[in-house]
């Protein structure tokens, strides 16, 4: 494991070095990304100010949800870049995945190390700023448990989105093409997680509870942190299922991933 990690960091260092070749333009790109993404929140905030609250949640409270989801998704999108179809699809289609199999190193590590999109810092910074805005606006009764649950949640959300990416990459072994519908769960999921979920129609809620259990990773935990009433009448423990769900999903996605690798057929020539 130590060896794997040290190799991973070596691969990442190479990636980062080449992406920082032109530091000024890199910084500009990251900042403008953060701003573009931030405007979505600004527009939302302006709209919300006309109504006062959304489903009983104030702007600050939604900002906490929103910032957390953006931050985690950005982190994930950076760490798991190698599993993104743009990077992983060609590996399978062109058969360059062969080259990973020839190396005496864990395949997952190699895929992680194959790409690291540092530009995602834009989204991460944006998420962080919105989260901080949320902290200043919302009235949270901070207990030790609540404070500690925040980093745990971030970790769980990263794992959660990461599993979806791994799952999506694995399907490439069979489909060879981008499975667009998966974006509904990844990008759609992160979108949904930015809002208090009880405002959505039942069908959407069910989709994101049972098919892709995003609701357990943002809404329910945040109900606990903000001490909000729970209009969905869920038992209290649902606020604490995040680690369990994230870890099981990650485990499942890795199982599926292993299965996919076994079914890899390479390409001719």
């Amino acid at each position: 494991m130590r060896r794997n990690l040290s190799l991973l960091f070596r691969l990442l260092r190479i990636q980062i070095r080449s992406q920082l070749q032109y530091p000024a333009s890199f910084v500009m790109e990251v900042l403008s990304q953060a701003m573009i993404l931030g405007f979505f929140f600004v527009a939302f905030a302006v709209t919300l100010s006309q109504f006062g609250d959304i489903g009983g949640w104030t702007l600050g409270e939604v900002a906490l949800l929103w910032g957390l989801a953006e931050f985690s998704f950005g982190m994930m999108d950076m760490i798991f870049s190698g599993f993104d179809y743009d990077a992983f699809g060609p590996l399978v289609i062109k058969g360059t995945f062969d080259q990973l199999l020839l190396r005496p190193v864990n395949i997952t590590m190699q895929v992680l190390g194959s790409r690291f999109v540092l530009r995602r810092l834009g989204k991460i910074i944006e998420g962080l700023i919105i989260f901080i805005i949320g902290l200043s606006l919302a009235n949270v009764d901070w207990t030790l448990g609540r404070i500690l649950y925040i980093p745990v949640l971030i970790f769980c959300q990263v794992l959660f989105f990461g599993s979806l990416f791994i799952f999506g990459a694995t399907t490439t072994f069979w489909t060879k093409e981008r499975l667009e519908i998966l974006n509904v769960f990844t990008y759609g999921g992160s979108e949904i997680m930015s809002y208090p979920m009880h405002i959505f129609p039942r069908a959407i809620r069910l989709l994101f509870s049972f098919v892709v259990p995003a609701i357990f990773l943002s809404y329910f935990p945040m109900v606990y942190i903000l001490d909000k009433p729970n209009p969905l009448n869920m038992p209290v423990f649902t606020s604490f299922l995040a680690p369990f769900i994230a870890i099981s999903m990650f485990w499942l996605s890795l199982k599926f991933w292993r299965f996919g690798i076994k079914n890899y057929q390479s390409t001719g020539s």
């Binding site: 062109k94 058969g95 360059t96 062969d98 080259q99 199999l101 020839l102 190396r103 005496p104 190193v105 864990n106 020539s269």
Partner: peptide, 18 residues
């Protein structure tokens, strides 16, 4: 035994680089 095995072999595929 992929991971242990490939330590002991080398391969060149002329059609593409490794």
């Amino acid at each position: 035994d992929r991971k242990d095995y490939v330590k002991h072999i080398g391969a060149v595929f002329g059609q593409r680089t490794t």
